[in-house]
């Protein structure tokens, strides 16, 4: 098993890229490190959408799990006083998994836009609950205190950055292993023809349920990381449909080709946004909308398919 993981080229490349990023973090200015953290956190959620997208499913409401993860971090601090990185991540993932498992029983019966819209509706129900409930912070949300590591509270953001990189690496490796397994490979098969999968004796509903829970876990962990990176959670920046919309946008922009793509896409997205707000403050939506159309028209494989024009990256696909 360990051998299989270490011999996977995508895994090696991901590890290398993230290690380089961690090293670079020691030298980069704080705002760049911040943007990177946001990008990586969002990238993990996009990785969750990628797992669904490979089966042709898209959730317009993954802000639900992103938000649950973020609020798990905030509330576990608020109620239990937790501030440890590992515990926070675990809490975020756990909450998302439980919710995803429960809602999965409903969502696994839906496809296409119905799946997308019902996901959206669920996320907006959570949004409504959060906004309305004082005990859950209402519209203001909570601030999240500095993250500690086994009791150690380091100066600056570098340690948190490195920790987030480590988690993203772990998540990417796990997803890569999943996608390479029989269960993961069935993805395309299920997208192509569910009837045939049923008649091969396998439950499509179960396969989709599993994917959905994996995807929720990733988005939950991502929300947790975002809460720690941002130091703040509130319904508008964690759960609102625009949050889900951004995740969908990055998924399409990055392309489904590799587990590395979501992180690349999400980091590009963060910087794109930072610069766009400086250069053309009123044209952000124009840029996003235009990019979306151009990608759908001319680059269906997303940014990753551009990288795949380079032989080195192309070889990863057949690995």
């Amino acid at each position: 098993m360990l051998h299989a993981i270490l011999s996977d080229k995508t895994v090696r490349l991901t590890a290398l890229a993230l290690l380089a990023l961690a090293a670079a973090g020691l030298m980069l200015p704080a705002w760049v490190v911040n943007n990177m953290m946001f990008g990586l956190a969002r990238g993990a959620a996009v990785l969750g959408l990628l797992v669904l997208w490979r089966t042709g499913l898209m959730s317009f409401g993954h802000g639900l799990y992103f938000g649950l993860g973020a609020y798990a971090v905030a509330l576990s601090e608020h109620w239990l006083g937790l501030s440890d990185f590992a515990l926070r991540i675990l809490a975020a993932i756990l909450v998302a998994v439980v919710a995803g498992f429960a809602l999965g029983f409903i969502l696994r019966r839906y496809r296409d836009i119905f799946f997308a819209m019902l996901s959206l509706a669920f996320s907006m129900v959570l949004y409504g609950i959060l906004v309305k409930t004082e005990a859950l912070g209402s519209t203001d949300g909570f601030s999240v205190s500095q993250t500690t590591f086994l009791g150690w509270a380091p100066e600056g953001k570098q340690v948190l950055f490195t920790a987030i990189i480590t988690v993203c690496l772990a998540l990417a490796v796990l997803v890569q292993m999943y996608l390479r397994s029989t269960l993961g490979r069935l993805t395309t098969a299920i997208r192509d023809n569910e009837i045939r999968v049923e008649y091969l004796g396998y439950s499509v509903a179960r396969a989709i349920h599993i994917k959905y829970v994996i995807s929720a876990a990733l988005a939950g962990g991502a929300g947790g990381m975002m809460a720690m990176a941002l130091g703040q959670v509130d319904p508008d920046s964690m759960v609102y449909w625009t949050v889900s919309g951004e995740l969908v946008f990055i998924t399409i922009m990055a392309g489904p080709g590799s587990v590395l793509a979501p992180f690349i896409g999400a980091i590009i997205f963060e910087f794109l946004r930072t610069y766009a707000f400086e250069i053309a403050p009123h044209a952000w939506q124009l840029i996003v909308g235009g990019t979306l159309l151009l990608i759908i028209f001319f680059l269906p494989g997303g940014i990753w398919s551009l990288l795949e024009r380079i032989p080195f990256f192309r070889r990863l696909r057949h690995d």
Partner: peptide
């Protein structure tokens, strides 16, 4: 197609 029309909406 939904996403494309979303892009159009933003534009």
């Amino acid at each position: 197609i939904v996403l494309a029309t979303f892009g159009v909406f933003l534009i």
